[in-house]
Design a protein around this nucleic acid. Structure first.
Lengths: 157, 157
DNA sequence: GAAAGGATTGCAAACCACTTGCATTCCCAC
DNA sequence: GTGGGAATGCAAGTGGTTTGCAATCCTTTC
């Protein structure tokens, strides 16, 4: 017997405030608003660092949904601008609201022992990136950059 | 019935020339030389871009080994300095000889359509990295950086 | 050179992130 | 209210990776 998410009955009640262009797209009807999608975006907005699907599902709490549904929605939201990242070294994809939507472009400093993530404010690579595109004839260029190390708490001694 | 790799009988015969510090470590006895390990390092040296375990296994050819053995050796070699990378977006880990061993540190420019990889010679992030470590109290710091775009061949028009 | 013991391997089964097929439910348009 | 496309839950299936175990290898010691 399949039951909808508890909040699925009146999804429109869930809209509170804009999250990003993604929410606007939802509003404009380019993407249907469902409770799971809305809840996923809320979760992502509340967390500074990218989350795995399991973390997202756990954070959904009472709005708990099937993992397959989370995965499907991550694909849907990705097509609408959500950012999927595979570069945290453990094989699990992580998601975050697009850096282009709202906040400025940023990167991370990750502790290789406890996985703590520190957000780095700005990115100085844009100029270099343009130069790179010109030199190699690439278009639509973007980049990923991650720093790894051992944070003060995890350091021996 | 379990059979060793065909070349396993006389592994020492396989040594031909130094590959990197990794091979030196093998030589000094810090890590035992086995045919699969030696063959894996040879394969990695011959390829410019990072390889998945399956690609490595295919490249091993007649020195063909069990996938589990390749995976185990990737972990062993990783402890000795081999670099494991998860940041190519398809969920499969890729391996390359450490940028610190032998060649200069470098990054990649990847075409998102045909997956062509262009090696970028140098890295200007080392100074920035030191500053980052100092500011956040991190130690053993390293980084990954990847650029993505559409290469000239794949561009429409 | 034979015996002992630890490391390495092959095989198979297990594990985990992720995807897919299908029946049910939801929602919107008519 | 009815029909149909979209979204969901469930369960089974992928594909990359790990692990348990017994057999084999290699090195050490006598």
């Amino acid at each position: 017997m399949s039951r909808p998410c508890p909040q699925h009955q009146h999804p429109h009640r869930l809209i509170q405030q804009p999250l990003s262009d993604l929410t606007d797209k939802l509003r404009r009807g380019e993407l249907k608003i469902t409770a799971p999608r809305q809840a996923i975006l809320e979760v992502l907005r509340k967390h500074a660092s990218p989350l795995t699907t399991k973390e997202i599902r756990r954070a959904l709490g009472k709005a708990d949904c099937d993992l397959a549904t989370v995965y499907r929605n991550m694909h849907t939201l990705e097509r609408m601008g959500l950012v999927r990242r595979h570069d945290f070294g453990d094989g699990a994809a992580r998601f975050e609201l697009s850096p282009d939507e709202g906040d400025a472009h940023h990167h991370h400093l990750v502790c290789t022992r406890c996985s703590k993530v520190i957000e780095l404010d700005d990115c100085f690579l844009d100029r270099f990136q343009e130069e790179l595109a010109r030199r190699h004839g690439f278009s639509g260029i973007s980049h990923r950059m991650e720093f790894f190390g051992i944070c003060p708490t995890c350091q021996p001694g």
